[in-house]
Design a binder for these strands. Structure first.
Lengths: 332, 332
DNA sequence: CTGTTAGCGCTTTCAA
DNA sequence: TTGAAAGCGCTAACAG
């Protein structure tokens, strides 16, 4: 006896005593098949180990069933290293939704506009999630595919529907947290305030929540050293009691802030409260667990997945805004 | 005029004045087509925007062209969080090779053995890379698929071909580095020495490189606190000058080691040299940049990808051992 | 080197 | 509710 060939729809149909079309319907439109036939079909399928061939149905339907995460090939940059730690969240967010659906996730690297154009004619995927694609020409090429697409983790764009973080809300959460703990003399440490939109919005949300625009803001360098230096500028005010709380635009910079405070004998949260932003794993390694605003890539990308599936099935292409959450530590 | 339908092989064949089979050959076996016809075919294809339909060829060939990264769905654990930071390297390693090939990468979550069985009959993929799958039953189910498979990042197994790290070599590198810098009184801080194989092998490699088995080893708790506590036990020996170098089994634990040394006024590397293991991003946040053994998931997974492609094309299923590299910091 | 031909396994009208 | 029939777009013998 030859090794049993992979069973096909025909085998199941014959054994179940129905037509091949009925087997197909049992899978794709169960309600249209009589209850008793359906159960026979599935029983036979199970016995035979039959599973519909994805490629054949894809060809016939003209749909691949694949959602692609599009990423640009890139040389490592500093911001890349920062993103790396969150990459697992990107994938988990996507998977949490896609695994529950009939779709599958494929990872595609695009080096050029041509790599994008090919996607549609080559039938590589039914829909696209653009991850950290900063290039407007690429976004336009994606739009030109005329397949469902969303863009996540990118500064505001008007080319593709997007899922993005409410950056102002993060600043507001920080302000509210300080206020709730009785801190009323806030400062803000940031960098590239006017050029990086997220910095701008975090600052804006923070300041607006207080209603007074005169909040002491240090617009220095981002990063550990930058945080250290910026903190030195606030030192006397902290010692005077003119500042009792600092919102730092991101965790990395906050590491430097913490180092500077420690080096100068200032205790957190006794002398000054700190709230950081991003809630990166790096916080686990600090002597004080910082309160931080979680940007939750998980949520952004699970939302993106939901949105793209909704788009494929209902045709709605909208923009979604995800609100960050505050994760409390011991620094307030 | 209706919107131009997606061009097919037939359109290209007609316009190029050749048969459809020749068009197909031009793509799949270019050498078998006369040079001049080939160029006409590609020119026409370009003009028409023709790209071969992946699904149709997959069906016809009986191959999907997809390599799947299989992961178990999991609740977050501590080791998971550790792995998370390296997940981007896993994907980059895979992509660096797969993007250069004709294959594509798909991410599949397996919740149960059944999810694995379905892979073959459903034609979801041609080959499988098992990522951090610790369950032997699952590995066996993968083997039963009889498709090319490799297993990466897992303790030694005999079920599937694997790509794994030479853990002993890491220990050896640390020893050699200490010796090269004139340090001759080593100690080792580890944990679960007998239960975790990687700990066992790192220790073994370290000790063997010295040739003397009497190296002071603290088998304490892993993690930041564990590293702190273990270091306290070595404190007097360090102060006495009986220990001039410490190899720490992983970076996280080394963070605690560093904290304990600092708290006790011991300078790195002046009083004692430190080498850690894993080379995680977390090292960037420490006051002293530690020398560390890079486990390079990137390399492990790019190797895994190469191996699986080799397996598909040449049918060789072998085991590969990847050697870690030492990344020098300022701690030796 | 090239053309003809026979499907891969499935879905979806259409008609019953 | 079901079955018959017509392909989806491509590849791989085979014969020339």
């Amino acid at each position: 006896m030859p090794p049993p060939a992979r069973p096909t729809r025909d085998d199941v149909a014959e054994l179940a005593g129905v037509s091949t079309a009925t087997v197909s319907r049992a899978y794709n439109n169960p309600e249209s098949v009589a209850e008793h036939k359906r159960s026979v079909i599935f029983a036979v399928a199970k016995k035979l180990g039959y599973v519909p061939d994805e490629m054949a149905s894809a060809l016939r339907r003209g749909k691949t069933g694949i959602i692609a995460l599009l990423e640009k090939s890139r040389i490592e940059t500093a911001s890349d290293r920062f993103l790396s730690t969150l990459y697992a969240d990107v994938i988990r967010g996507l998977k949490s939704v896609i695994d529950q659906s009939k779709y599958r996730l494929s990872l595609i690297t695009v080096k050029s506009i041509d790599d994008i154009k090919v996607l549609k004619s080559g039938k590589f995927c039914d829909a696209v999630i653009a991850h950290d694609l900063q290039d407007n020409e690429m976004l336009k090429a994606i739009r030109a595919l005329k397949i469902p697409a969303v863009c996540a983790f990118r500064e505001d764009n008007t080319i593709l529907p997007q899922v993005r973080l409410d950056e102002e809300y993060g600043g507001k959460l920080a302000a509210e947290c300080f206020l709730a703990s009785g801190r009323t003399k806030p400062a803000h440490i940031t960098g590239q305030l006017t050029t990086i939109k997220s910095c701008y919005h975090r600052h804006k949300g923070f300041v607006e929540a207080y209603g007074s625009p005169a909040i002491k803001t240090v617009d220095g360098e981002l990063g550990i050293n930058g945080g250290y230096e910026s903190t030195l500028k606030l030192l006397s005010d902290i010692k005077n009691g003119h500042i009792d709380s600092i919102f730092v635009v991101n965790d990395i910079t906050a590491v430097g802030v913490l180092q500077a405070l420690q080096a100068n004998g200032i205790s957190v949260p006794r002398d000054v409260s700190i709230i950081a932003h991003d809630n990166l794993p790096i916080l686990d390694t600090l002597p004080v667990r910082l309160t931080s605003i979680d940007i939750s890539f998980r949520k952004i990308y699970s939302t993106a997945a939901k949105q793209i599936i909704g788009n494929m099935e209902n045709g709605l292409a909208m923009e979604t805004i995800v609100k960050p959450e505050i994760v409390k530590g011991d620094s307030v």
